[in-house]
Design a protein around this nucleic acid. Structure first.
Length: 402
DNA sequence: CGAGATTCATGTGAAGTATACCTTTAGGCTTAA
DNA sequence: AAGCCTAAAGGTATACTTCACATGAATCTCGTA
């Protein structure tokens, strides 16, 4: 008893003694730094586009693109704070909605409801016809002179789900407002998003457009250096640690979020192992860990049929000790597996699609080859590293209750 | 021997179907005036 | 009467099926040298 508690004591004290992190929060997503390196140009542009609100004029609608982790959201939040600071009074309203958060705001109704709530009104969670919600919304914002900027983050998600009617209504709203005026800022990481939009919406939504390019390794390094200064204690990072994080993330389309995750997880790993410093090796470990979690997560959340197909592939490759297998083999193995587990068997057509989705997700590598008289098929290789295969199998067995 | 036709096993696209999940609507019930 | 709830009705996205046609190189066919 005493022994255990002293052990635990040891763990805790050594944990407390180990001061790798000064403030881990700085590396978290929700942290908003005071400065945003290498986004000066974009921020200036946004600022000059939105500046008219300070003089009480309506601004152009703005549309922002850029891949994940290029600082779109961050810059926009930054500008929002600055504008609110200067604009002061309640005649300037800037609301931010993330359209991707499921269950909160991914339908027209919910987005409106959320906006109304933020503006101080209230609507029942369900039941009202949409046009009434519109009316309520209009009433709420139009009761006195206001300038309103609505920021829709991850707007592409919403539009896929609820037709572009919503945007059309919003862009047209200005005509119905007597006192107030609305500007819309859309943020999307899908560059092709605008193309399959109603042309009317397209033109009015993208009065101004702005692209956030991916960070390159050097810029990522600056960002990391800055954050690391606040997040870690002095000289706990080995030389080159930051550069390596940056390089890894730059390879993944310059995703700053990824870079920060890498650094944080490397730090956590080092801390857990009671190391005094974060070394280059820890970055590799962190990278593996992220990669691993990603794969396991995909596997875990995949629907049953997908899991069956994946298991069929893994079994085939293991049992036959082959590197590559072909569509037909997979389908047969899959069929057997279905019978064994009493699941219904999908058509070959569908399995073909499942396989190409696996390819997209990076679970397998496949290419279509023709073997002449032996027909045409996908040549399939498993892209899951060997050490992970067991774990993946475990998850599959578990979730298919085998 | 070689050009062109054939063939295989599946890729790929379009269109249709079943299903689950939403939103809308209408009717009925409750509540407060 | 107004407000609220609920069940049915109507809509829509998703997951799948069916049908139809496309592919591309090994193989076959057959005319020709």
């Amino acid at each position: 008893m005493n022994n255990t508690s002293s052990k635990i004591d040891k763990i805790f004290t050594s944990f407390m003694d180990n001061h790798l992190f000064k403030n881990k929060f700085v590396l978290q997503l929700s942290y908003t730094p005071e400065t945003i390196p290498h986004r000066d140009e974009q921020i200036e542009q946004i600022a000059s586009i939105l500046a008219p609100v300070l003089k009480g004029e309506r601004t152009s609608n703005l549309f922002i693109y850029g891949k994940t982790g290029t600082g779109k959201t961050l810059s926009m939040q930054f500008i929002r704070n600055e504008l609110l600071k200067r604009g002061g009074k309640d005649d300037l309203v800037i609301e931010y909605v993330n359209c991707k958060l499921k269950k909160v705001s991914d339908t027209e109704y919910r987005i409106l409801a959320e906006l109304i709530k933020k503006l101080g009104g209230s609507v029942p969670a369900t039941g009202l016809p949409t046009d009434q919600v519109y009316n309520k919304f209009i009433e709420l914002i139009d009761n006195k002179k206001k300038l309103i900027i609505l920021i829709f983050d991850e707007i592409d998600h919403a539009v896929n789900k609820l037709s572009d009617n919503f945007l059309y209504n919003l862009t047209r709203l200005n005509g119905e407002l007597v006192n107030s005026q609305i500007s819309i800022v859309g943020i999307s990481n899908n560059i092709t998003f605008l193309d399959n939009l109603d042309p009317r919406v397209k033109s009015s939504l993208s009065e101004e457009e702005l692209v956030f390019p991916p960070y390159n390794a050097l810029q990522l390094r600056d960002i990391l250096t800055e954050r690391a200064k606040k997040a870690f204690n002095e000289s706990v990072l080995d030389d080159g640690v930051i550069a390596k994080c940056a390089a890894f993330a730059a390879r993944e389309h310059g995703d700053a979020r990824r870079a920060l995750d890498l650094l944080r997880i490397a730090g956590e790993l080092a801390e857990r192992n009671n190391l005094k410093k974060v070394s280059l090796g820890d970055i590799d470990l962190a990278n593996e860990k992220i990669e691993r979690e990603k794969i396991l997560d995909i596997v875990r959340t995949e629907p049953k049929q997908f899991q069956l197909v994946l298991l069929a592939i893994i079994k085939l490759i293991d049992e036959q000790k082959l590197e590559e297998i072909f569509t037909g083999d997979v389908y047969n193995a899959y069929q057997e597996l279905c019978e064994q587990t009493k699941n219904e068997v999908l058509t070959q057509r569908r399995i073909g699609d499942v396989l190409s989705e696996f390819d997209m997700m990076g679970l397998i590598n496949s290419s279509v080859i023709s073997k002449g008289r032996q027909g045409r098929m996908r040549k399939i290789k498993l892209a899951i590293p060997n050490q992970l295969k067991l774990k993946v199998r475990e998850i599959l067995f578990d979730s298919l209750s085998l």
